[in-house]
């Protein structure tokens, strides 16, 4: 501790101011979006514009929503290696999917209007979110660690039941479940897009309004209370925002973690790790937009690569999980060393 105090104080001056970095990220996102829309545009624009536009909008929405939710979640839990997928949203999505396919059959499931499925998914996830913080937050008495651990166990429970139901399922129907169990950006319904962009928009506005309070929360519970920002109240608000964002994003495209498993969705982890490197600050008024832009860049840029370079041979999520695993290890090991 005291020997590092001798390090020169001025050596860490920022090379680029943070606002400039945010603008840079925005330009990069716009470039990715333009590339996604324009590269290989051979069909007439009357077809391309709505077709690619819808996919692009879904990518940006999901990227932004999950990134912002992850930043808020990490501040709430004071932990940089957790992401909200820990709370079992992905597992629940697959559970509901499995249940519907099992009880109705794959053909009947395919005939359900997408709007209805979206509503069912959003509804069930909202219910889970409500359960998590109405019941558990009270039982855990504001103890975030206990809440998160309960979330993990709950996710495990849902996953186990899902696996049980999947054993009962017809092999052909199981294939349907499996193909729908990973986030897809290949077909996006415009009606759903409008619905979810509304929900995500509300979530983003709420998250932005929490930014200054989240800064205080990052000082620790005691300091936050002393400054007039008791954590219990803030945690409730923030959990609501997280549930809204993650549930709408998941209902729109499906789970971002493959099979709803894994210690955390690596996507959120990659985004926040990069955000902390590119825009190193404690201020959420910088971190939130920075993470949102990075999330958009990764999804749009990644999908662009997946479609144009790898010709859709590899699903985007698989690539993200692969890179994410590495980032996860690096973040974990670096924390140990520090």
């Amino acid at each position: 501790m005291s020997d590092t105090a001798l390090a020169p104080a001025r050596s860490r001056r920022r090379i680029l101011p943070l606002s400039l970095r945010l603008w840079g990220l925005l330009i990069l996102l716009v470039a990715c979006a333009a590339g996604y829309m324009l590269i290989g545009a051979e069909a007439p624009w009357s077809f391309l514009l709505p077709y690619r536009g819808a996919k692009l909008a879904a990518l940006v929405l999901v990227g932004v929503a999950l990134s912002v939710a992850t930043v808020v979640f990490q501040t709430l839990t004071a932990n940089r290696i957790l992401t909200p997928s820990l709370m079992g949203f992905d597992a629940l999505y697959i559970f509901v999917l499995t249940l519907m396919v099992h009880s109705l059959g794959a053909t009947a499931y395919a005939n359900i209007p997408v709007g209805l499925i979206f509503t069912i998914n959003l509804g069930s996830m909202a219910l889970l979110g409500l359960l998590l913080f109405a019941v558990l937050l009270r039982l855990a008495r504001g103890d975030m660690v206990r809440l998160v651990l309960t979330g993990i166990v709950l996710g495990l429970l849902i996953r186990s039941i899902t696996e049980f139901v999947q054993r009962l399922i017809d092999p052909n129907e199981f294939q349907t479940v499996q193909s729908l169990s990973v986030a897809r950006f290949t077909q996006v319904d415009t009606g759903l897009l409008a619905l979810s962009s509304l929900a995500i928009g509300v979530g983003l506005v709420l998250a932005w309004r929490l930014r200054l309070r989240l800064d205080v929360l990052a000082l620790g519970d005691a300091a936050a209370t002393g400054l007039g920002e008791p954590p219990a109240k803030l945690q409730r608000h923030a959990m609501l925002v997280i549930c809204l964002l993650v549930a709408s994003a998941t209902a729109l495209v499906g789970p971002m973690a493959s099979q709803g498993a894994g210690p955390s969705s690596f996507f959120g982890l990659i985004v926040t790790a990069i955000a902390h490197v590119l825009t190193p600050t404690h201020r959420h008024s910088v971190l939130l937009p920075s993470a949102a832009l990075i999330g958009g860049i990764i999804l749009v840029g990644g999908q662009l690569m997946a479609e144009r370079v790898f010709a859709l041979a590899t699903p985007l999520i698989v690539v993200i999980e692969l890179i994410g695993g590495g980032v996860f290890l690096i973040v974990l090991l670096k924390r140990r060393a520090a």
Binding site: A78, A218, L219, G220, D221, A222, A223, G226, L227, G228
Partner: peptide, 15 residues
């Protein structure tokens, strides 16, 4: 918070 300040324990700051 405008009446009573609490000096925090430095160990709890994660940011």
């Amino acid at each position: 918070a405008r009446t009573l300040a609490v000096m925090a324990q430095s160990s709890h700051v994660q940011a």
